[in-house]
């Protein structure tokens, strides 16, 4: 009885969560320039229109470069920190880890602004790579969260066994550690990629004149006649995000199964 009421509430809550996103495909395929009801009919015109926007293409290219670079950098930095924090005790561990994880709880505007002040202060020209710096910073905590779980579920005696059987530390890492945490690494790459691709504030302030996808979208929101195309673009982006997340979740679960650990739920 009680469970039924809660269940209804939970489902309504999910509807509330998804309702705005559900509008994306509805208006992306709606044959009208104004986003309003009633619907006017089906069209793929807005998707086709995306092909004729050179700035969009540049923004997409920039975003992909940034997202790939940031995810690789953040995952690499994440491997170091996750390994250190799960395997070793050392002085200042709590402080250093807190510092590295700080971007999780710091308003992004403050991260972006303070970084911008330093970059402007030392006379750096804003470009794609300055965005990569910022994105790596905010993606690293997420990478660490995922990778720590992967390293944590790895039995230390597996590595000791390989070392005991004559392998060097490096070959032990390659033959045992890496294959067993690989699902975590892939998962971390995908999550970081998704975060970077969607990130707006840091890109907005640190990209200089280079557009990224969210910055481009933001700039187009001021022009009502661009909105349907943005809805189409949003539809594609959401579909892509869901796809990447599903793949990430698949690898995370496969990793857990491989090491025989118990599933404890989501990404965070």
């Amino acid at each position: 009885m009680k469970g039924q009421g809660l269940r209804l509430y939970a489902i309504l809550y999910l509807v509330f969560l998804y309702a705005p996103i559900a509008l994306l495909p509805i208006f992306a395929f709606n044959d009208a320039t104004i986003i309003s009801f009633p619907l006017r009919g089906f069209t793929t015109e807005w998707f086709a229109a995306l092909a004729d926007l050179p700035t969009l293409h540049l923004a997409l290219k920039n975003s992909l470069i940034i997202a790939v670079s940031s995810s690789v950098l953040a995952t690499s930095l994440g491997i170091f920190a996750a390994r250190a924090s799960t395997r070793y005790e050392f002085p200042g561990k709590g402080g250093l880890m807190g510092l590295i994880m700080l971007p999780l709880v710091l308003p992004e505007v403050i991260v972006a602004m303070s970084l911008l002040m330093v970059l402007l202060g030392i006379g750096v020209n804003l470009a794609i790579w300055t965005v990569i710096l910022g994105h790596t910073l905010i993606c690293t905590p997420f990478a660490i969260a995922i990778l720590s779980a992967a390293f944590q579920s790895l039995d230390k005696s597996l590595e000791e066994a390989a070392y005991d059987l004559g392998e060097s530390k490096l070959s032990t890492f390659r033959l045992i550690t890496l294959p067993l945490v690989m699902p975590g690494i892939i998962s971390s790459l995908l999550i970081s990629f998704t975060i970077s691709l969607d990130e707006f504030i840091i890109a907005f302030f640190l990209a200089g004149s280079e557009p990224t996808l969210p910055v481009y979208i933001y700039s187009q929101l001021r022009f009502p006649k661009q909105i349907p195309a943005i809805m189409a673009l949003g539809t594609i982006l959401v579909a892509l995000s869901v796809l990447l997340l599903t793949i990430a979740e698949y690898f995370r679960r496969r990793g857990l199964k491989k090491t025989g650990a118990k599933d404890t739920g989501g990404f965070l």
Binding site: D155, S157, L158, E160, A161, A162, Y163, D164, L165, G166, E167, S168, I176, P179, L180, K258, T259, G260
Partner: peptide, 29 residues
């Protein structure tokens, strides 16, 4: 170091490499 000592160990958790087959485990060394 442990990897050149003339000793081998059976671990409490057995430390069987989960991503390898039985013969790959046994032949690891």
């Amino acid at each position: 170091p442990a990897n050149v000592r003339p000793t081998n160990m059976v671990f409490q958790s057995y430390a069987i490499f989960p991503h390898l087959t039985v013969e790959q485990n046994v032949g690891f060394g």
